[in-house]
């Protein structure tokens, strides 16, 4: 403003604030986020990678470089091709599998919910979105614990069935197995999947749907030819949003998994805490990240082949 008032020949070149390059202004804006990301994520991540090349010697760490931890894990994995997978490989495969099933369940649950909100609710959509967040008002731990109460030996289902006279003894297969982990994960993460799917459905121009009907599609056909392909960005986002965090989930298998339901997260925690072998735990963490990255890349390669070709949707 002062530059303008001075009436100089080229006011912009005299204004000192104008000289600051754009990238610096951008840097200021992201500085807080960047500090957190570097301090809380990048540094620990580097620490994990570095520690994974060390050795635990009693209470001390031998900081000389070694590939021993990875060697152990590679041996563990190589056993898959001879006499059955080793402990860690089994856990990683099981974790990926449980997450895959839970993610599938989540998307199958969330999609109709998102569809209903996007296409059937005419008024008060905000109320529905708020209702969707209600589960988050209690902590994750409590929600997982609630499933323990529902599925437990003397839990809601068993005592209900018993009082109805349908069973004599409580059903033991409900809790402490991979299935109970899957159910709990599917419930706990459903809300995360609804929102991205809802947004991508809401964004679809209604004239596309009318055009599809006009060109002879029934409702069912129209869904698969127009609605679903156009909602893919949100659906893919939902799948990644649920799959990636659930592979490494630690609380759910600890509370409802039992011995057969433990996942790789539990094993990593054991290495760090009980087994006092941080380097092996760190190597396991790195291996798990690698496994998730590979799984996600594979998924995107399969799903995204057609989409990448077609620019934006």
């Amino acid at each position: 403003m002062t530059a303008l008032a001075s009436g100089a020949t080229s006011p912009t070149s005299q204004d000192p604030t104008r000289r600051r390059p754009e990238w610096l202004a951008g840097l200021w804006l992201i500085a807080p986020t960047l500090a957190i990301v570097i301090g809380m994520m990048l540094v620990p991540l580097c620490a994990i990678v570095i520690v994974s090349f060390w050795t635990q010697t009693g209470f001390d760490l031998d900081t000389s470089f070694t590939l021993a931890n990875y060697g152990l894990l590679v041996d563990d994995a190589l056993k898959c091709f001879s006499d059955g997978c080793g402990l860690y490989s089994t856990l990683i495969i099981k974790s990926l599998w449980i997450s895959f099933v839970a993610t599938s369940a989540v998307v199958l649950l969330a999609y109709p919910m998102a569809y209903f909100m996007a296409f059937r609710i005419q008024r008060g959509k905000l109320v529905w979105i708020i209702l969707l967040t209600v589960p988050f008002w209690t902590s994750y731990l409590l929600r997982v614990f609630a499933w323990k109460v529902i599925l437990g030996f003397n839990g809601v289902i068993n005592s209900g069935l018993k009082s109805l006279g349908l069973i004599e003894k409580p059903l033991e297969f409900l809790l402490y197995n991979p299935a109970s982990v899957t159910i709990t994960l599917a419930h706990a993460w459903a809300a995360y999947a609804v929102l991205p799917i809802y947004v991508s459905l809401e964004k679809i121009d209604r004239s596309y749907l009318e055009a599809a009907t006009d060109l002879g599609d029934s409702r069912w056909k129209r869904f698969w030819r127009v609605t679903f392909p156009l909602s893919l960005p949100g659906t893919i986002a939902a799948i990644l949003l649920v799959f990636i965090p659930t592979v490494g989930d630690y609380i759910t298998p600890t509370l409802v998994g039992g011995p057969s339901g433990i996942m790789i997260g539990n094993s990593i925690a054991t290495q760090f805490i009980k087994a006092n072998n941080a380097p092996l735990g760190a190597a396991l963490s790195c291996l798990m990240m690698l496994a998730i990255t590979l799984a996600v890349c594979l998924f995107l390669a399969v799903i995204g082949k057609k989409r990448l070709k077609g620019a934006d949707i």
């Binding site: 596309y208 009318e210 055009a211 599809a212 009907t213 006009d214 060109l215 127009v226 934006d312």
Partner: peptide, 22 residues
């Protein structure tokens, strides 16, 4: 009768060209 069972076709104001198809 719904649009898919009528002998009519429509050119929409917004054209409604499906973005995921060529």
């Amino acid at each position: 009768r719904p649009p898919n069972h009528r002998p009519t076709n429509m050119v929409f104001q917004s054209y409604a060209i499906f973005p995921h198809l060529d």
